[in-house]
């Protein structure tokens, strides 16, 4: 068995299907937003009071997580329709 039968694949975990790649990219970008230094997402550098006296970025924490869950639910629903979670498919 030569090594040419097993070429190196740095993209090993990147799916082949376009729809799945698109979804992974959406989720990746969503969760990378807070790490982007020039876009201080929930990291407004000063205190801005929001509704009920709660700082705006605390509201953002909550909304960010809920939207993340909704995104995940939509992805799972879509992926189920495409057979991603069917037995014996893409395992």
């Amino acid at each position: 068995m030569s090594s040419t039968e097993y070429p190196p694949k740095p993209w090993l975990v990147v799916p082949k299907e376009g729809w799945k790649r698109a979804w992974y990219l959406i989720l990746f970008i969503y969760y990378v937003i807070p790490l982007w230094p020039d876009v201080p997402f929930f990291v407004w550098q000063k205190y801005i009071p929001g509704p009920y006296g709660i700082p705006i970025f605390v509201w953002t924490y909550a909304i960010y997580q809920i939207v993340g869950l909704i995104l995940l639910a939509i992805f799972i629903s879509y992926a189920k329709k495409r057979g991603m979670f069917s037995e014996g498919v893409d395992e």
Partner: peptide
Amino acid sequence: GWAGLAISCVNAGLGLMVPGLL
């Protein structure tokens, strides 16, 4: 302070999704 809440931010979406899908 409030900055500490950032620790909780990713687990809702990614806590089980990353290990589950990977």
